[in-house]
Structures are given as structure tokens and as C-alpha cells.
Design a protein around this nucleic acid. Structure first.
Length: 216
DNA sequence: CACCAGGCAAGTA
DNA sequence: TACTTGCATGGT
């Protein structure tokens, strides 16, 4: 019998043992990571994949090509992701930022200092903390921890934070506890999402075989 | 049928 | 400040 503490490192180890390394983000290029980060807002990845496939088939998964689309064209491609009008605007807002900052050079944009990049991303209407941090961690590969709805459930249902805990508070818990390691932050968040997809539901926990042994 | 999904911003009091 | 609502498709 191994005693399990509900420390973050212990939770990480158990998730990694149970699910194995996830090797995120599920996309081929930093640009696709960025687009996917917006499209997956409050949306199942399965639907996001459809939207990305539509863009790929139309040869629009590049900065220049996406920038050239009208709002209506873009919205049509990303229709399966839901909130398509909203997300078309949000993507165009994001492209406009990068166009303005670097003339459309994504690599240059992602090469910036973490704090500078985060502030710039958060200034875009439609980019909140999770989307910004997802882009920073998975596209720019800089060490910031991504908090999402599953993270909140995991922490609060384990009693590690209060139910009303804020994004920044939860992020700080991870970043103050764990070593500042991009690969670790990458894998940990991916494992939390993996856990969430399989075991977490908003209302009814279905956790008979949950690897953490705690109702989620 | 009801509920959910890797959020975010705007409106109301 | 603290709730509430709109956005929307597709899977279970």
C-alpha cells in the first residue's frame, strides 16, 4: 500500500503513471497551436479538430492565409467549433495584434519575453488568461502554468483551494510549488485535461476507477 | 430528452 | 464589486 498525499507532485506522478506522457499540444505548428487555443474556448476538442481540418483543407492554416480571409469566410470554416462568429472576431483580433507588433512574424512574436507577451495577448479582446497561457506554454514553449476548468475541479474537489479560487491564485499554487520547468508544466496540464475528459463532469462525478482515488 | 465541452466579455444592480 | 447572460455546434 502506498500512502498518497494530495500534493501536486504526488498527483502529477499518479497521473503520469496512469495515463502515460501526453506529448501535447495536439497540433503540428505553433500557428496551429495558437488558432486551436482560441477555437477550444469552452468547446470539445473533437469539434475544434473539425474546424482546423476545414482550414487546412482550404490551405488557410498560415498567418498570411488566415489574415486574408473575410470574417464570413473564416466563420464558415470554424463553424463546427461553435461560437463561430465570436471566435472569428477573436482570431482576427489576435492576428491584428501580431501584425501590428511584428508585421506578421509569429516566430518573432513568440520569441518575446514571457511577461511582455502575456500582457500583449491579454490586451486582445477575446484572449483571456487560459488562452494566453496556452499560447505561451504550447506555442512559445515558455514556462507558465495553464489553468482550466478541470484544474479548478481537481484542486477544489481535493480541497487544495477554495471553490471560489481565482485563476491567478490557482496558477500561483502550481508555479510556487513546482520547479519552473516548461516540459513539466506542459505535461502536467495535458494530464489534467486527460483526467478531466475521462472522469470529471460538472455535476455527477463518475469516478469509480479514477486514478486519484478521489471523487471528481 | 438534458447535459456538457481545454472561456471570455458585457450587462445589470 | 458580484452575479447573470450571450455566444452555438456536436457528442453522450
Amino acid at each position: 500500500m502506498h500512502a498518497h498525499n494530495d500534493t501536486l507532485t504526488d498527483i502529477y506522478q499518479r497521473l503520469l503513471t496512469h495515463f502515460g506522457a501526453q506529448d501535447w499540444w495536439p497540433a503540428d505548428t505553433p500557428f496551429e497551436v495558437m488558432v486551436g487555443a482560441v477555437l477550444t474556448q469552452n468547446t470539445n476538442w473533437h469539434n475544434v479538430a473539425k474546424g482546423l481540418a476545414n482550414l487546412r483543407q482550404a490551405d488557410c492554416l498560415s498567418f498570411a492565409a488566415l489574415l486574408g480571409l473575410s470574417h464570413a469566410e473564416l466563420a464558415t470554416f470554424i463553424r463546427p467549433t461553435g461560437y463561430y462568429n465570436l471566435k472569428a472576431t477573436r482570431l482576427q483580433n489576435l492576428l491584428a495584434l501580431i501584425q501590428g507588433e511584428t508585421g506578421g512574424d509569429l516566430e518573432l512574436f513568440l520569441d518575446q519575453d514571457l511577461e511582455t507577451m502575456r500582457a500583449q495577448l491579454l490586451s486582445v479582446k477575446g484572449i483571456g488568461p487560459e488562452t494566453a497561457d496556452s499560447i505561451i506554454l504550447y506555442a512559445a514553449e515558455k514556462p507558465v502554468f495553464v489553468v482550466d476548468t478541470y484544474t479548478h475541479r481537481l484542486l477544489s474537489r481535493h480541497g487544495l483551494v477554495g471553490e471560489e479560487s481565482s485563476y491567478d491564485e490557482m496558477q500561483e499554487l502550481f508555479m510556487a510549488t513546482l520547479p519552473e520547468d516548461t516540459a513539466l508544466f506542459n505535461e502536467f496540464h495535458a494530464l489534467i485535461v486527460c483526467l478531466g475528459k475521462e472522469f470529471c463532469r460538472k455535476q455527477k462525478p463518475r469516478c469509480a476507477t479514477c486514478p486519484l482515488g478521489v471523487l471528481l
